[in-house]
Amino acid sequence: MSDEEKREKVFNSVGKAIREIAPYSGLGLQLAVTVVIFWFIGKIIDEHYGTSPLWMIVGAMLGIVVGMYNFIKSVLELGKKKEKPKE
């Protein structure tokens, strides 16, 4: 009985860990994807107007700024959510 309880406890804590980690694991990709789209938009502009590599660099820089900003903001919001139920 106690063995089963222990197993259930482990199972629950693993589930809880996954629940906590999952949103953060999604955010990592968001940062990467943001940089890639902005770089790509810059590349398309470059190909269209023949201004390579100006807009590609601008796009990548903008992507890093936007991605980082959103990333930090989302993480702060997630952190806030964790404290709420305790109040």
């Binding site: 990709l29 968001q30 994807v33 943001t34 789209i37 902005f38 936007v66 991605g67 900003y69 959103n70």
Partner: peptide, 11 residues
């Protein structure tokens, strides 16, 4: 922020 709105959906 405005570009971020689209980036989120794309992600």
């Amino acid at each position: 922020e405005f570009l971020g709105l689209f980036a989120k959906a794309f992600a």
